[in-house]
């Protein structure tokens, strides 16, 4: 993945110089290990700021919503699927975009790496599929594939689905069982499920980082901010916290691409994808639908077909 950056910079520079776009949305180097900051590049000389490595987990489609400029955007597999969703939902026009596709081999799970080491991680570098982690008094080399974000390790759309430029050859897609963990929960009795989610959400502080990092969550007024009527209380009551996560997941049904931005953004490391993934699985099993794969097909929740499943209706 490291080799991509020269190509990314070269393409970006060309696009800006030829006035094909007004700006490029990409990542610049962060001030912390395993962190990159999304950034906006408007002039050819700033192109050098752009970076690309395995810490670009934030979904850049999030920064497109309702923009009017012509934009060049760097997109890995999940970003591109969310760009498709944005286009379908009229949040941006295809003509405005030049999509610089990046075949992706997964992002590093920073929560997990942080908790793996006692001391503080000071530097993380990657080379040939290996990650070198350095701290004050330790240094360790790990296989990148062993420390991927969970959503990346079960990702089956690593290559961008739409793109105008491509920075390298497409990578091989994985053949994995995507829903092993969801099935585990499905097999639990109700009471156990309830307790599982109670425990999962017990540290939530309702900072809404998951919502705001999500490219799907662009409603002008979120249901948790509605006050007439007020659907959900605003305190840190566990039921209200659960209502928030549950309804947010519902709003993402048939739209979520499992990009993992929510989980990555969470300061307290909650895997709220256990909600969205169940709905994703249901959409796939019942409607054969995966979000963001095609610009021409309408999502299952705004179409009706006679063969839609209806056995839950009496």
């Amino acid at each position: 993945m490291l080799g991509y950056i020269d190509k990314i910079r070269q393409i970006s520079k060309g696009l800006i110089e030829d006035k094909k776009v007004d700006m490029i949305i990409g990542f610049k180097k962060g001030t912390m290990p395993m962190m990159n900051e999304p950034c906006l590049v408007k002039s050819p000389k700033d192109v050098e700021k752009l970076v690309w490595d395995s810490n670009c987990g934030i979904n850049l489609a999030n920064y497109l919503t309702d923009r009017k400029e012509r934009i060049g955007i760097i997109a890995k597999g999940c970003d591109s699927r969310n760009i498709v969703t944005h286009i379908i939902e009229n949040k941006i026009k295809r003509e405005q975009l030049v999509i610089i596709g990046v075949p992706c081999t997964g992002m590093i799970d920073k929560h997990r790496l942080t908790s793996m080491f006692e001391g503080e991680i000071e530097q993380v570098t990657e080379q040939n599929g290996n990650i070198t982690i350095k701290g004050e008094d330790f240094e360790e080399i790990l296989k990148k594939n062993d420390v991927l974000q969970q959503n990346c390790s079960v990702c089956i759309h690593r290559n961008p689905v739409v793109y105008d430029e491509l920075v390298s050859d497409l990578v091989e897609e994985q053949d994995v069982d995507r829903y092993e963990d969801v099935r585990k929960i499905e097999a639990m009795p109700s009471e156990k499920k309830w307790n599982y989610f109670d425990d999962l959400l017990s540290t939530c502080i309702r900072c809404y980082a998951c919502r705001n990092a999500c490219p799907l969550c662009y409603c002008p007024t979120c249901f948790v901010d509605e006050s007439r009527p007020q659907w959900v209380g605003k305190s840190d009551d566990s039921i209200d916290i659960r209502t928030f996560h549950f309804l947010r997941a519902y709003h993402c049904a048939g739209r979520c691409t499992d990009c993992g931005a929510c989980e990555r953004a969470c300061p307290v490391g909650i895997n709220m994808r256990m909600f969205t993934r169940k709905l994703e699985k249901d959409c796939f099993e019942q409607y054969g639908w995966e979000a963001g794969l095609s610009l021409d097909e309408r999502p299952p929740l705004d179409t009706y077909k006679p063969e839609d499943p209806d056995d839950f209706i009496k």
């Binding site: 929960i185 499920k193 909600f275 009496k314």
Partner: peptide, 16 residues
């Protein structure tokens, strides 16, 4: 909702 621990049978849908 059942995924989250609400018992099946608390929520019903019908067409009348």
């Amino acid at each position: 909702m059942e995924h989250m621990g609400i018992e099946p049978g608390r929520i019903h849908f019908s067409w009348v």
